[in-house]
Simulated assay, not measured.
Amino acid sequence: MWQYLVVWVVTTVLSALLTPRPKTTTPEPGQVEAPLASADAPIPVLFGTRVIKQPNCVWYGDIRTTPIRQSGGGKK
């Protein structure tokens, strides 16, 4: 019984350590990649799970980037 618990803990720690970390990039103000909104754009046919860089959508939202000018969250 203890052998199974030790093997489970070791494999869980190894899988957590060996997973690839995503690259985090923060866009600069004015450098936001908005989706394409065009009536004559072709509709892509995809099979499986894919990432579309420029999807065709009708409305994306208010694209604004404003710097946060507030200090940390201390108690008042």
Rank of each mutant, 00 (worst) to 15 (best):
G61S: 01
R50E: 06
G73A: 08
I43L: 10
I43G: 03
R69N: 11
P44W: 01
G73K: 05
D62F: 02
G73H: 04
R69H: 06
S38L: 08
F47Y: 09
G74A: 15
P44H: 04
P35Y: 02
G61D: 03
G73F: 08
P42D: 03
G61Y: 01
A37R: 09
Q54F: 09
S71A: 15
A39W: 07
I63G: 02
I68F: 09
I68K: 08
A41W: 02
A41L: 03
G61N: 04
K53R: 14
T66I: 10
L36P: 00
G61A: 02
L46M: 09
P55G: 02
G74M: 14
E33F: 03
I52M: 09
F47W: 07
G61W: 00
W59R: 12
C57W: 02
I63D: 08
A37D: 06
G73S: 15
G48A: 04
Q70E: 13
T65P: 00
S38T: 04
Q70Y: 05
W59Q: 13
T66V: 14
S38G: 01
T49Y: 04
W59L: 11
L46D: 07
P42A: 09
G74S: 14
I43A: 13
F47V: 10
S38V: 00
C57R: 11
P55Q: 07
A41T: 09
G48Q: 05
A39Q: 07
A39D: 15
K53M: 04
P35D: 08
T66Q: 08
G74I: 10
I68N: 08
R69W: 01
A34Q: 13
Q70S: 15
L46G: 02
T49H: 08
V45A: 14
P67T: 01
G74D: 12
V45I: 13
R50C: 05
G48W: 01
Y60G: 12
A34I: 10
I43Y: 02
Y60L: 00
V45P: 00
P44A: 06
K53E: 15
R64I: 06
S71C: 06
D62E: 14
C57N: 11
N56L: 04
G48I: 04
